[in-house]
Amino acid sequence: MQSQTTQIAVLIAITTLIFLLMPLFLILYIRSYARHKKNHSLEKQHMQQKFESEILQARIEVQDQTMQTIATELHDNIGQLLSLTTLTLNSVNLNDSEKAEKKIGNSLTLINKSIKEIRELAKLLHGEQVVENGIGYALDQEITWLNKTGAYEIENNNGLIRVTERSPDKDLIILRLLQEIINNIIKHAQATAITFDAFYKEKVLHLNIKENGIGFDSEQATISKAGMGLNSIYKRIEMINGKLILNSSPNNGTIILIEIPYP
């Protein structure tokens, strides 16, 4: 009888303890959940701020790159066209009507070509209009400007890719990625030929670039992500949940494969 009473007392004690501990565990769980939720919210806010900061940086860099392109084009192309026009007009001899007419005709051709080039530059002066026309147009314009330098043998497979969906913020980062890659090729690769292959398939934007330059140790570069602007490129790829594969070796050129979920 006493043993049974003791068992009942122990059972009551355990039950009481459980009822006392349950609110405590519940309070601890609620506090833990609230803290986790707050940390998640702060982390999400931090990621959003980081993304917005990256967008702003990309926008500034795209604008800087645009200004450099315009300055180069004004100096090397339009400046040359206008100088030729001036020389041609200065050499006109009105006493020789036949030659004068021919030279004036040539001058008009040069002026019309200059006007056309200035109109193309005017498109770039609208800032983000290139991106507003779609990522396909933006990438194609960048390759076109590179081709106009005449420094490389350019192959642009698929031409202007058609992407019906839009993601302006992501487009800015993608455009800046291409600009950084092109700048790296110009500065370091010593290439003579560059092939661009861009296509859009199953909600993924593919951008492949191949050049025949001096190459480098891509395995070491991928591990360290240092030098030649690779750190910035990898950082931006991660920010838009993309994937980058780098294949290169000394004296064998470089192949860059990029896959980006889009939009």
Score class of each variant (00 low, 15 high):
residue 2 Q to L: 14
residue 2 Q to H: 08
residue 5 T to R: 02
residue 6 T to V: 05
residue 7 Q to T: 12
residue 8 I to W: 07
residue 10 V to P: 00
residue 11 L to P: 01
residue 12 I to P: 00
residue 13 A to I: 01
residue 20 L to V: 09
residue 31 R to K: 09
residue 32 S to G: 11
residue 35 R to M: 06
residue 39 N to D: 14
residue 41 S to H: 12
residue 48 Q to K: 15
residue 52 E to A: 10
residue 55 I to T: 07
residue 55 I to L: 10
residue 62 V to I: 12
residue 63 Q to R: 09
residue 77 N to A: 07
residue 80 Q to V: 07
residue 86 T to L: 04
residue 100 A to W: 00
residue 101 E to Q: 04
residue 102 K to E: 01
residue 104 I to H: 02
residue 105 G to E: 10
residue 107 S to H: 03
residue 109 T to W: 02
residue 109 T to Q: 08
residue 111 I to S: 06
residue 114 S to Q: 07
residue 116 K to H: 15
residue 117 E to S: 11
residue 118 I to P: 01
residue 118 I to C: 06
residue 121 L to K: 08
residue 123 K to V: 15
residue 125 L to S: 13
residue 127 G to D: 03
residue 131 V to Y: 03
residue 135 I to D: 03
residue 136 G to P: 08
residue 139 L to I: 12
residue 140 D to S: 09
residue 140 D to Q: 09
residue 143 I to M: 07
residue 144 T to G: 00
residue 146 L to A: 11
residue 148 K to M: 09
residue 149 T to H: 07
residue 150 G to S: 00
residue 156 N to Y: 10
residue 158 N to E: 12
residue 164 T to S: 12
residue 166 R to K: 15
residue 166 R to N: 14
residue 167 S to E: 15
residue 174 I to F: 01
residue 176 R to K: 11
residue 177 L to D: 01
residue 184 N to R: 06
residue 185 I to D: 01
residue 186 I to D: 13
residue 187 K to Y: 00
residue 191 A to T: 05
residue 197 D to E: 09
residue 198 A to D: 10
residue 200 Y to T: 06
residue 200 Y to V: 05
residue 202 E to D: 13
residue 203 K to W: 01
residue 205 L to Q: 12
residue 206 H to K: 11
residue 206 H to D: 08
residue 206 H to Q: 11
residue 206 H to T: 06
residue 216 F to E: 05
residue 217 D to C: 08
residue 222 T to R: 15
residue 223 I to R: 13
residue 224 S to D: 10
residue 225 K to L: 07
residue 226 A to P: 00
residue 227 G to D: 02
residue 232 S to L: 07
residue 237 I to W: 01
residue 238 E to P: 00
residue 240 I to L: 04
residue 243 K to P: 00
residue 248 S to M: 02
residue 252 N to M: 11
residue 255 I to N: 03
residue 259 E to R: 05
residue 262 Y to L: 04
